[in-house]
């Protein structure tokens, strides 16, 4: 039962450690996932809180991964984009066809790439770029 107590404490600690101004979504970017593309409603936003309002309009499960980086042309290795060396900012996996999810992040100025890196999906064109200005 000791493990139980520790884990519950961990849960509460993680919960209270949540980042972000509660409820504030900042700049909302409509983000559409198709099987062959990721479309953002804007390609440039100001630094600060940014929310990707994601809709999966494809007929497959997709994911959204946001990496720091400016180059959308990544080496493809074993059917996935080789992202080693890139810093992952955050991700949401298992976005169902027709599903809507929201990913709120604090983004400093810089270049970012948004990809779905399920096997084969990057090669099909599921990548785009976001520029965050300071």
């Amino acid at each position: 039962m000791k493990g139980l107590a520790i884990s519950l404490v961990t849960c509460v600690a993680l919960l209270s450690g949540c980042s972000g101004g509660s409820g504030s979504e900042g700049t909302v970017i409509d983000t559409t996932l198709n099987n062959t593309s990721i479309d953002l409603s804007v390609s440039t936003v100001e630094a600060g809180t940014v929310t990707f309002a994601v809709t999966n309009e494809g007929d497959q499960v997709h994911e959204i991964e946001v990496f720091a980086g400016s180059n959308t042309v990544l080496p493809v290795d074993k059917n996935v984009a080789n992202v080693s060396g890139l810093t992952l900012i955050d991700e949401i996996e298992d976005i169902l066809p027709g599903g809507n999810v929201r990913l709120t992040l604090d983004l400093p100025a810089g270049d970012y790439i948004v990809i779905c890196n399920l096997p084969g999906h990057y090669e099909m064109g599921m990548v785009t770029k976001l520029v965050v200005t300071g």
């Binding site: 993680l14 919960l15 450690g17 949540c18 980042s19 972000g20 509660s22 409820g23 992952l88 955050d90």
Partner: peptide, 13 residues
């Protein structure tokens, strides 16, 4: 609780 707060745990956590 996360859902009500409209939050996700940050990636690191």
């Amino acid at each position: 609780a996360l859902n009500v707060a409209g939050q996700r745990l940050p990636l690191t956590a």
